[in-house]
Design a protein around this nucleic acid. Sequence first.
DNA 1: GCTACAGTTAACCAAGTGGTTAACAGTTCG
DNA 2: CGAACTGTTAACCACTTGGTTAACTGTAGC
Lengths: 104, 104
Amino acid sequence: MVNSSFKALSHPIRRQIVERLAAGPATVGEVTGDFGVSKPAISKHLKVLEESGVVTRVVDGRTHVLSLRTEALDEATEWMVRQREIWTRLFDVVEDHLKEESKR
Amino acid sequence: MVNSSFKALSHPIRRQIVERLAAGPATVGEVTGDFGVSKPAISKHLKVLEESGVVTRVVDGRTHVLSLRTEALDEATEWMVRQREIWTRLFDVVEDHLKEESKR
DNA sequence: GCTACAGTTAACCAAGTGGTTAACAGTTCG
DNA sequence: CGAACTGTTAACCACTTGGTTAACTGTAGC
C-alpha cells in the first residue's frame, strides 16, 4: 500500500536500512551496523519495513536474511510522479496563459 | 530535505491535500474539504506540509492560498528511484550469475 | 549437553502525533 | 462601528512511536 510505504520510509534509520539492502540482501546483524541503537530497536524497525511490504525476510538457520521488495518502492514512486505530472501540466497551462496575457 | 518530505507524506490526509493541490492552488477552506476533521487539525497538517517544503502559502487578505512545491516531491522521488536502480542492477547481476551456473 | 550466537518478545518509559474545543487575530462588508 | 468570515493559537487528551533493559527462543558447534 502507498499508505504504509511512506510511513515505513519516514524514519531515517529505516531509510538507511533500505539503502543498505539496495546494495544487496543482508542479515539482521549486517543491517544493524552502527546506528548507535540497540538490537531490539532495529528489530522493531525491520518489523515496520516488513509489514509495509518494503522488505522481505527468509529465515536461514539462526540468521534472518533480508531483501528489498522494489514493488513497494515503485508504488510510492508512482504516486509522487503522478502528482508531479498533474502539477507541472497545470504549471505549463498557467505559464502559457500569462504569456498570452502579456501580449495584449 | 528527503527526511521531512517523507514524514510529511506519511499521513493520508496530508497526501489528499497534496493531491488536491496537484490540481491547482487552493485556499485553506478549499483543501479542508470533508475529511470529517476540524479546522485546527487541517491547520496543523498544513503547517507540517509547509515546514517540510512540500507546500507554500501566500496570504491574501483573510484567505491563505496554498501551492505545491514540486521540488520537494522530486527530491523524495529521486531517492526512491535511486534505491530502486541499485537494487534492480544487483538483481540482474544475480540473475546472470544463476544462468551461468545452470549452464554447467 | 552446554555454551555461544542471532534474533525476537515483553515490559516499561519519554516524547511526539493527531485530534478536540475554546479563544483569539485579522479582514471584509453592511 | 459591529457582525460575519477565514484561519491560527492555546490547552488539553488519548494513542503511537522509538527507545531502553531483561528475558526468552532457537540454532551451531565444541
